[in-house]
Design a binder for these strands. Structure first.
Ligand SMILES: NC(=O)c1ccc[n+]([C@@H]2O[C@H](COP(=O)([O-])OP(=O)(O)OC[C@H]3O[C@@H](n4cnc5c(N)ncnc54)[C@H](O)[C@@H]3O)[C@@H](O)[C@H]2O)c1
Ligand SMILES: NC(=O)c1ccc[n+]([C@@H]2O[C@H](COP(=O)([O-])OP(=O)(O)OC[C@H]3O[C@@H](n4cnc5c(N)ncnc54)[C@H](O)[C@@H]3O)[C@@H](O)[C@H]2O)c1
Lengths: 230, 230
DNA sequence: AGGCGCTTGTGAAGACGTGCACAAATCGCG
DNA sequence: CGCGATTTGTGCACGTCTTCACAAGCGCCT
């Protein structure tokens, strides 16, 4: 499940604040989900709760970390040490959440050799050698969109089977390779959509029956239109 | 729909490469989705396709931008000009995708006054005044997790109803306020989970011959494990 | 020992998303 | 003008996810 990491983060917070056990209600609250959903998720891992008491925080952390494959600290290769890449390279969230930045790569000779956070930027052509030494589990792409596909191909070629892509484009990869995408503009546009919807609703406070977005061509407001789900 | 921004990006690409019309198949391909799903999505906006021909790229861009509320360039306030905040402030993807960074805020007096990309960092206490001048549509939180809730409260207090949160924590906001979250570590952990799953599968080669070459660490896990859906 | 309150785990029902498959509609061409 | 090629729009079925509601289990207190 994609919610396990969220539970894990909440559990770590709880552990730091001294909680030994936690009820599904409390954990669901901390993770921002429904308690029934959380119980169903956790029951998939096995039954690690005690009725009448709750879940053992430490044990649950262990279990989730095992299922997520965080028992080994996975090596991450970051490609594209530009604006965003610098921020990522300097981010301590990698280390504290089970990952290790193993190498930084860039194509710009001007950037190669630069040291960031104790790591030296290497040229992208050195990727095969580095991959031979270190077993790279995950590749992160922070290059411009135009270069992303090429970088993805290079990562796949050296055996990387998981890619996190920050470039706003779709990557095509062979089966067996997982790609996740983070696109800031898409997040903003989704928020903008909700803003627009909220504005339309308050502008025409009808009975509030069916929520209907406004008209395309700037036509008269009396007309109504289908709502679009989230 | 959350897929509309993806379609929009693909459409802009198509427009730049000179396409006047595009079939659902072609657009679905460019956006990485099923063509039936895409047609169903677009049909929710109204019928802007021509059977036997496809969709008019320009018209469709207009329609989607309208529905997403991108006809006006929305003002974004960025709070927390640290490691990540710098990268975001210098990102041109805001401007090219329908947004405008209206103001930068930070609580550190040492950062206040710094100029980034033509914008001056202001103290977070000035937020009410700035919000009075500019109509801020979206707030972006790039502060440490410990400060995120407080910043969210401040944003809500000045009338912001959409928040993009980069801090790894859950925000509680009053109803009517939308929050979207971007958590890098969660993305990595989901990838790690799939890695773990793939490793378990290749460790016990049943019959299927996948094209994967190198074995993982030759690690043998005697314990079998439940498969968990994505 | 027994009862009581609390919490888990799960069955069932409903909502939702997805993809197939096909009728309807449009264009181009002879 | 008519026909075939092409593509949209959508009914339908199916699987997944979500939520409610409740029985079963556990610990504590009397
Ligand atoms: N900056 C942000 O806040 C932000 C936010 C969201 C998404 N993004 C996306 O992240 C990507 C990077 O953004 P940025 O602002 O850091 O851009 P940038 O131009 O500052 O950095 C890009 C880096 O990639 C390197 N590069 C180019 N081609 C390469 C290749 N083939 N192999 C290896 N390295 C290569 C460049 O030398 C440069 O250092 C872009 O696709 C952008 O759209 C950025
Ligand atoms: N750096 C990354 O690549 C990255 C990636 C993903 C998530 N994040 C998250 O983004 C957040 C910021 O990360 P960072 O690396 O930029 O941290 P950072 O410490 O470099 O920057 C945080 C900034 O927020 C400011 N700040 C603190 N409290 C504030 C307040 N109450 N009001 C206004 N500003 C305040 C600080 O002065 C500082 O400038 C963190 O929550 C981090 O977990 C960072």
């Amino acid at each position: 499940m994609a919610r396990l990491p969220e539970y894990l983060r909440a559990l770590h917070n709880l552990a730091e604040t001294g909680h030994e056990t936690i009820s599904s209600e409390g954990l669901a609250n901390a993770a921002g989900v429904n308690s029934a959903k959380l119980r169903k998720d956790l029951s998939q891992l096995g039954s690690y709760g005690t009725r009448g008491v709750g879940y053992d925080v430490g044990l649950l952390i262990e279990q989730i970390e095992y299922v997520l494959g965080l028992t080994q600290r996975r090596a991450v290769a970051l490609v594209g040490v530009g604006n965003l890449g610098h921020a990522l390279a300097g981010y301590d969230g990698f280390a504290t959440r089970g990952f290790r930045i193993a190498a930084l790569f860039d194509a710009d000779p001007g950037r190669v050799g630069e040291e960031i956070n104790g790591l030296v930027v290497r040229h992208i052509d050195e990727l095969p050698q580095v991959a031979a030494d270190e077993s790279i589990a995950i590749g992160v792409i922070a290059t411009p969109a135009a270069a992303a596909q090429q970088v993805a191909d290079q990562l796949v070629a050296v055996g990387v089977t998981s890619i996190l892509n920050f470039a706003p484009c779709v990557l095509s990869v062979p089966p067996g390779v997982d790609v996740r995408k983070v696109d800031l503009a898409i997040e903003l546009q989704i928020l903008s959509f909700h803003e627009h919807r909220k504005a339309s609703l308050t502008a025409f406070p009808t009975t509030g029956g069916s929520a209907l977005t406004a008209l395309p061509n700037g036509f008269v407001v009396t007309e109504s239109q289908e709502a679009i789900g989230t």
